[in-house]
Amino acid sequence: MSMSKKEILELEQLHDSFGDDPETFVAVLEMFMQEVPQDYDDLKQHMAQQDYHASGLLAHKVKSSYRMLGMQEETTLLQEIETRAKETDEVEKIPALFEQFETLYPEGLKQVMRTIKHLQERINS
């Protein structure tokens, strides 16, 4: 098992891109909360149908969202899924990789929500 997740995200990538701009961070995090759950549901469906080509394409899309927030574990797993799907190499390992992603997914969303709350408190103080 991995170490437990930090309370909130550090958002180094966003800091590098935008400076210390809590309003922009909140906008990016809220977009994540809108898009990622929809893509996750689609990904789950493709996985259930063993459509690894479609799964790989979606994994690529979702990966960039996680990478932008500096969520390393999820990024790595999605990269693995994407690579195996694209290269049709060891595709039989894809379901197990997706299962690992699924176990991280709910806590990751909570972490994003806590980060939004933390930033909103900063904006409003």
Results as ranks from 00 to 15, higher is better:
85 A>K: 01
55 S>Q: 02
83 T>P: 03
113 M>P: 02
55 S>N: 02
87 E>P: 10
3 M>H: 13
86 K>W: 03
23 E>Y: 08
33 M>K: 11
53 H>P: 08
65 S>M: 01
90 E>L: 11
105 Y>R: 02
86 K>R: 15
100 Q>K: 11
94 I>W: 00
42 D>A: 13
105 Y>G: 04
90 E>C: 10
112 V>A: 12
6 K>Q: 10
69 L>I: 06
61 K>P: 00
24 T>P: 09
33 M>Y: 03
10 E>D: 13
72 Q>C: 07
89 D>K: 15
98 F>M: 07
88 T>V: 10
7 E>I: 09
67 R>C: 06
10 E>T: 08
108 G>Q: 01
35 E>F: 08
122 R>E: 09
108 G>P: 01
31 M>I: 15
18 F>W: 08
80 E>G: 10
14 L>C: 14
21 D>I: 01
10 E>G: 13
25 F>L: 02
17 S>F: 15
96 A>G: 04
108 G>R: 00
1 M>A: 14
46 H>G: 06
22 P>D: 01
9 L>M: 07
20 D>A: 09
122 R>A: 12
36 V>N: 04
118 H>L: 02
26 V>Q: 05
41 D>F: 06
90 E>Y: 08
94 I>D: 03
54 A>F: 06
83 T>W: 10
42 D>Y: 10
88 T>N: 14
58 L>W: 10
11 L>C: 04
39 D>K: 15
92 E>G: 14
60 H>S: 02
69 L>A: 05
2 S>M: 07
33 M>L: 15
52 Y>I: 05
55 S>Y: 09
90 E>N: 14
26 V>H: 00
52 Y>G: 05
112 V>F: 07
91 V>R: 08
125 S>K: 12
62 V>N: 07
89 D>G: 02
30 E>F: 10
116 I>L: 05
